[in-house]
Amino acid sequence: MALEAKNISFRYSRKEPWVLQACDLSLARGERLALFAPSGYGKTTLARLLAGYLTPTEGQVLLDGAPLPKTGVCPVQLIFQHPEKAINPRWRLKRVLEEGGILREDILDAFGIERPWLDRFPRELSGGELQRFCVARALMSGADYLICDEISTMLDVITQAQIWNVILDEAARRNMGLIAVTHNRHLARRVAGRIYDLSRRQWDAADSNGA
């Protein structure tokens, strides 16, 4: 029961340099991991590879020993840094949520999503509110693993704390695997059990208090 990256490398084409090389990673369900690195070390690429948005040039991403499913709802869901790009701007937010599955009142309540918002269009809400919808949509899809790529970088710290507290609760309750991609060391320490520093290719010894 784990999400594994086996010696994966990625580049966009043969002419281009490697974005990511020979990376190994394993995350069991119920585990919380932070990927920490400054920009330029391929964190976002790694996140996309793990969620099946990109296919590794070399190596494999395995879920419970098998490749990620190509069709159907992916059990590994990715949350993006810019929520406004992950939502169809012409859809009302109710429809956005329903794309993830059946509306779940408990999740709406946990995020403090006010019901009138469901009838609004994305441009009428702020980034923080939209990010709640993106996370809620992923949770409603029944994901087993959640990969959060700098999801709160553009948000204010109060919204950041609100969203992360819900994610941490849900992840614990549903025994989900969680990867937090971030450049903020404080946040990494707060949300993850162990921290992998992609720039130095090592587990952050000082912060690792076991998984």
Partner: peptide
């Protein structure tokens, strides 16, 4: 190339559905 189309795919939607709805 929009992110939300890629998201739609990972949420299990097929090409026909995406064409008709997005």
């Amino acid at each position: 190339n929009e992110t939300y189309i890629a998201v739609s795919r990972r949420l299990g939607k097929g090409s026909g559905w995406i064409l008709a709805h997005h």
